[in-house]
Nucleic acid binder design. Structure first.
Lengths: 347, 347
DNA sequence: TGACGAGATTGGAACGTTCCAATTATTAGT
DNA sequence: ACTAATAATTGGAACGTTCCAATCTCGTCA
């Protein structure tokens, strides 16, 4: 069954031309006569020829592969990021190598090594927790274009594309304050990540400018997952002075917070305001629809891919650090429902 | 910056051995003396050598790549499936090529072609909607091991691994009937897929064996997403005789149904019983925790990968069709909460 | 001492493609 | 009709590895 490989030489023989001509046809060169091109293409189809990229890569020392390594594919934020990357990478004629590190830096080392061995021409990395510049040093020295997404690493010397976490948190908390909230919690996330710190900074700045004290008791970390959100809100509700609103580390945490609230017979959006971060697709269809800071993961993936492609084309490009703007999308979970209900009553 | 490639020949020169010896070291052959092995390894480290898999693949006509193509990475079921595959594939020393087709068969054709060009040694495919045996024919003729997951394709002549959809639906509906429900809907999913049909078959069989009529008005299709669930339940509640319970096509639909219920001030689990299908990670932490038919996507990914690896190792294996058992996980959303509340009151 | 075999090592061919320089075929200009 | 320019085609080398058969180096045994 496993038939002989048909090669460019077989095609050449069958079409009565040389292998060089076949090669030219394969890469769509304008040098070859229309008639021969047609003939060669016909033979290619007939013999069921499959191009051997390994051989091509070997000769021209560049592949059409780009690698993307994410720290948690299970989180739909990263899944969406990956489909964004996939979309633009595909249409540029590249193919995507995707690996999931599950936040383990050992695994990350392995997959990056493996990708280099396969000769990827660029890499998009959302680094695992605790990744340091030194971990990436051999990679960047090799001259392979790299763009870091979501999480930046100081001193890595490569391009990065992160969202404006501080500004997003600032806007969200200002919104809550404008609605009259005074005890506002920050829930979820690992405190040792740069993303967490940036978001908390925005949170604190907003409180400060409103003259509210940003006590540490209201910043409660947890795993950045739905389950983490449940535990975080439980902890928050144990406090002497309970918060009335929360900005969550991400949407997954926010959903968990809603779950935890309901478990205590509190209705998110009515009895307690919750704002998420990321704007994953489910945010708009959830009930109540989640107010969140939109970072458009898919769009981010697209932009990261474009940036990488640009660098690949340019050969050697200066690293750029892009911070992607972010906007607050106000939906129901932050208390819009309360106002509406008041209006309904008064009318 | 972009330094010269260091090759096996450079290593050989620096270590004072031949390239053949270096090659032997690279593949961990026992033929080479311990002392030379150590020396070669040291030089490899010093020079920062990167193995060139393209060259190796070219020579030995087999790669360490397996491809996985999924129809919707945005759906966390498939994301989890992918991480399951990734886990076993990685530890077998393979690397994973992941592509997302977004249900478009054109895209699917492209990515499969691309994977073949890269010389993948096996393929795990969750086919896009509407894929036919003919679409896969050239692939399977080439002798590359293929395993189909989630969705089987009649007459494709390759291995498949699907879950026991009929049995799962049967168990779920029996459970609802045992709880006293008489008007039970089947919500969500595209009616033209084999998975949908199998699940509906189980649903109908359960109703029939209880002597209930399985009227078509209670089977309501929709997109298999959260948003689809919202529209499906809305449609169901328009019926003259409203259902009191629903089996949903998958968990995403089930979550949407819960959302839709809440939008009508109905509490899922208390006022209406809902059962999902798949058991994605969020199912157990949601509120109310989702009763669902557990298919363990990650485990399925692992099993699919193992099956594929087995076939790759065996060279040529008879296609096997595995149907993976499934079990009903009873949590709150199907009405457990009602009973518990009754008990609380009476005690 | 010579033959033998096991343990290590080696040079060259091969994998399927692309690139280069060279060649042939075709057309245009004088 | 001859040259120049252009269009189309070509053979061979090269890419970095693995495989094969051959070689070399010992120590052992008769």
């Amino acid at each position: 069954m496993a038939k002989e490989r048909v090669t460019v030489i077989d095609i050449a023989r069958a079409a009565g031309v040389s292998k060089s001509t076949v090669s030219l046809v394969l890469q769509g060169s304008s040098l070859v006569n229309e008639a021969t091109r047609a003939k060669v293409n016909a033979v290619i189809r007939d013999l069921g020829y499959v191009y051997n990229r390994s051989a091509a890569n070997l000769r021209q020392a560049k592949s059409k592969i780009i690698g993307i390594v994410v720290n948690d594919l299970t989180n739909s934020f990263f899944a969406e990021l990956a489909v964004g990357v996939d979309a633009v990478v595909q249409s540029a004629g590249f193919v995507q190598f995707l690996a999931n590190t599950g936040e383990k830096s050992e695994r990350q080392r392995e997959v990056i090594a493996s990708m280099r061995e396969h000769g990827v021409s660029g890499l998009i990395i959302s680094p695992a927790r605790g990744t340091e510049a030194a971990d990436l040093a051999p990679l960047v020295e090799s001259g392979i274009p790299v763009v870091l997404v979501v999480r930046d690493i100081a001193g890595a010397g490569v391009s990065s594309l992160i969202s404006d976490n501080r500004a997003g948190a600032l806007a969200a908390v200002r919104h809550l304050i404008a609605r009259g909230h005074r005890r506002i919690a920050f829930l979820g996330g690992f405190a040792d990540t740069a993303v967490f710190q940036a978001r908390v900074r925005g949170y604190r700045d907003a409180l400060r400018e409103a003259g509210l004290n940003a006590g540490d008791d209201l910043v409660i970390g947890s795993a950045p997952s739905r389950a983490g959100g449940v535990t975080a809100i439980e902890q928050a509700m144990m406090l002497e002075e309970r918060p009335t609103a929360a900005l969550c580390f991400n949407d997954a945490v926010a959903f968990g917070v809603c779950d935890g609230l309901r478990a205590r017979r509190l209705e998110p959006g009515a009895d307690f305001a919750v704002i998420g971060f990321d704007d994953v697709i489910e945010a708009k269809t959830a009930v109540p629809a989640l107010t969140t800071v939109s970072v458009d993961p898919q769009g981010m993936g697209e932009r990261a891919a474009e940036l990488l492609l640009k660098q690949i084309k340019a050969g050697r490009a200066e690293p750029e650090a892009i911070v992607s703007p972010v906007r607050l999308v106000v939906r129901q979970s932050c208390g819009a429902a309360i106002e509406r209900r008041l209006k309904e009553v008064s009318s």
